[in-house]
């Protein structure tokens, strides 16, 4: 991992695109695992939340067996991202509107982008990982 041949000068813009609901599939959890490991590489990281991916940031997630899912609630980890210097979180406006969500419903501070701004932001990235 900490390969000697790696050029330490290289800082790329990494974008993680999250498009899936948090518990229906493992994509959200495993995407977060990449973000956390990736943070050790000191790259310029952004996260985007689109479609059902916006639910990943929803407050008051209850994943207990009684509530239905019976899975580990990993939503608190999004609040810890700041400590990893992952501070650029972008949320798609249309996805929020379609689901009746506002920034007050979210766990963390985000920037809401419309489709054009989201596309522009994506265009500025070097590496886009889509989950």
């Amino acid at each position: 991992m900490e390969d000697e041949m790696m050029d330490e000068e290289v800082i790329k813009k990494f974008l993680y695109v999250n498009r899936k609901a948090p518990y229906g599939t493992v994509y959200a959890l495993e995407s977060l695992e990449v973000v956390l490991i990736g943070a050790a590489f000191d790259q310029d990281v952004s996260l985007a939340f689109i479609d059902d991916g916006v639910y990943q940031l929803k407050k008051d997630q209850n994943t207990s067996v009684d509530a239905g899912a019976g899975m580990k609630n990993f939503s608190k980890t999004y609040r810890a991202l700041e400590a990893y210097d992952v501070e650029k979180l972008y949320v798609d406006k249309k996805s929020m509107d379609e689901r009746g969500l506002s920034v007050d419903d979210l766990l963390v501070d985000v920037e809401i982008l419309d489709e054009a701004k989201m596309a522009e932001m994506m265009g500025q990235q070097d590496v886009v990982l889509s989950f």
Binding site: M1, E33, Q43, L129, S130
Partner: peptide, 21 residues
């Protein structure tokens, strides 16, 4: 190996191409 290998691939490659759903 670990996920660091994926990040390294992103850094070292000119293009990272993702095949997924």
């Amino acid at each position: 190996s670990g996920l660091g290998q994926l990040i390294e691939a992103g850094i070292q490659s000119e293009r990272l191409v993702v095949f997924g759903d």
